[in-house]
Design a protein around this nucleic acid. Structure first.
Lengths: 340, 340
DNA sequence: ACTGCAATCGTTATCGGTTACGTTTCCAGG
DNA sequence: CCTGGAAACGTAACCGATAACGATTGCAGT
């Protein structure tokens, strides 16, 4: 009779098979030095007891576990999309994935917890990690690939071509005739936030329009952070005719604020976001945004991590992925009223 | 100087602090029996070395880890939504979450791997698991909560009110005037598939319409499985004027097949799905479907698991959540041509 | 000064595996 | 018959932590 409630360990198998745990281990791992007859005995005992090796015990002793980790600072649409890409890349690769999420993700709580989790995992459980977090550079014994890294990081990373994407977005607004374009920036520490702001500035400069610092709001990619900034921009007498937000999450909040203030989009105000999260297609009006294929970000990050772990290393360590502008219904030419 | 590349263990801390590892452990876990002076020394050593306890080693020795697990058979929209709910429920609960995903999730490969992963995790790493998989009942030493369990399972589970949801969906079609309504069933082993079919039958029975077995296609919730079934149904001379699919994934494939066959939706064919995954709002036309709040499913499952793990146990073990019909543009009254 | 009990801290077994090393078995070669 | 060496297998150390237990220390009570 099989005991279902008691965990069956290797020594249980060893006892039943009449061998030592070392031999069981050799059979399980297919190592050399076990006679065919013994192998059969051990396998039969494993079958009979329903033995499964403990991931924990194995990883404590071994260096390679064939498990990769993903540590994310939050779990919204962005991360979910990234995750799908990661899973796709790991499909049939022999690597399993462990996603570690802590319970405080909804608040900003402690900045250091990703680092803590990374340390707790990478010492033993995982062969390497993908991190997607706005806080600091991660240090770890095992390889780490960052998605959307912090500014100035030289570690392996994958990111979108934020500069080009932002430039295109602003050029789109300029092409529609907008001249006063507000900007809501992302978290300053991230390379992406920086590049998106650079793109904004570059596009304006190219059009010969001086940057008005008062039209720039300092958000942090957290959607809520955009609310007061949008309110401030839109309640001004000389409000901008368009707002470019550095993320869709923030852009969607701009739409909300606009509605709250009685401004029609795109008639009274044009809004452009960045990311193209699934929700952006669902709003009314649909959000014009820069698609950065978070799926692709995850896919490439996982591919890179795999090659780092296996020691192949055949490509550059900082990958930049193209973006594309997705034009929906939140942008239009400015009306006379909003035009200055 | 801090060594970043060498993993710093408890004995490193002990050496620096001039105490034993047992004392370090006591300090880390806030146990009784350490003098204030020693605590300070140990803390300082921890700080200096950047020590983080290894999750693996800890969980091997301890019974409680304050980590819950999630094992899913695939990682599509459905699971992603569930996950968001789980994370919300775990927010600030003191429980962290580990999601284990294997690399073969894209194929159907081996039916047993969830059980294997569950065994590998629940022996040690996690205090309990949420499983969302269409295969079999899971046995584990630690508590397990199933989302959308297999039929006849008496284990703790969370599921939508599939019977009522399906009934409402079919009644909606009947109300529009449809009389020949096809059905594409889900994986037979799942309680949800069974109930949705029951709802289909019940609604027809209530309307006094005999069930035509040839109008029922046997899918398995995998979107691809719906393709040949939809083709078969729609190429018949007496094709149904409406199709109710047991999942959105399958319903979206029905839409594709209809387009391929030159049938206009909803003019020539009405389609209703079940789940309300995000994609269903994006298709053209938008899919009428039964919302089962996968977010809520995840949320409730996590809540239940928490109380099972902490031994509270204050609620029934099989939770059923309400559903609601979401009417979009894929359903309309049948036209004369399609009406029989 | 001596005993007794807490408080404090180290020693060691243990969790479930892996693996270096040692031992035994077996067979071929001298 | 003896020896050598490879194959097969067991023993025990070890991974990084926890906790039962024992040993030491400090201090109050007599």
């Amino acid at each position: 009779m099989i005991e279902v409630n008691a965990p069956v360990t290797m020594s249980d198998v060893a006892r039943v098979a009449g061998v030592s745990t070392a031999t069981v281990s050799r059979v399980v791992n297919g190592h050399y030095g076990v006679s065919a007859r013994t192998i059969a005995q051990v396998r039969s005992a494993i079958e009979q007891l329903g033995y499964e090796s403990s991931l924990v015990a194995t990883s404590l002793r071994r260096s390679r576990t064939n498990v990769l980790g993903l540590v994310a600072h939050s779990f919204q649409s962005y991360t979910a999309e990234v995750l799908k890409g990661v899973m796709k890349a790991l499909s049939r690769s022999g690597f399993d994935l462990i996603i570690y999420a802590n319970s405080d993700l909804y608040g900003s709580y402690s900045e250091g917890w990703e680092q803590r989790h990374l340390a707790r995992l990478s010492g033993t459980l995982t062969d390497g990690c993908i991190v997607v977090t706005p806080w600091g550079e991660m240090r770890s014994r095992a390889p780490v690939v960052a998605i959307d890294p912090v500014r100035g990081s030289t570690a392996p990373s994958v990111m979108a071509d934020n500069l080009a994407g932002a430039t295109t977005a602003v050029e789109h607004l300029l092409g529609l005739g907008h001249r006063r374009i507000g900007f809501i920036a992302g978290r300053d520490s991230l390379a992406s936030a920086w590049s998106r702001e650079e793109g904004y500035r570059a596009a304006l400069a190219d059009a010969g329009i001086p940057v008005d610092p008062t039209l720039i709001g300092r958000g942090d990619f957290n959607p809520e952070s955009a609310v007061p900034l949008a309110r401030a921009l839109l309640q001004r007498a000389d409000r901008p005719s368009a707002i470019f937000a550095a993320s869709d999450g923030m852009a969607l909040k701009v739409l909300e604020v606009a509605r709250e203030l009685g401004l029609a989009v795109p008639t009274d105000l044009s809004v452009v976001g960045f990311d193209n999260i699934p929700e952006s297609a669902l709003t009314e009006p649909g959000l014009t945004t820069v698609d950065q294929s978070m799926f692709q970000l995850g896919y490439e990050a996982a591919r890179m991590l795999k090659s780092l772990v296996t020691g192949e290393w055949d490509e550059p360590s900082q990958v930049v992925l193209p973006t594309s502008l997705v034009i929906r219904d939140s942008t239009a030419a400015p009306t006379g009223a909003a035009r200055q």
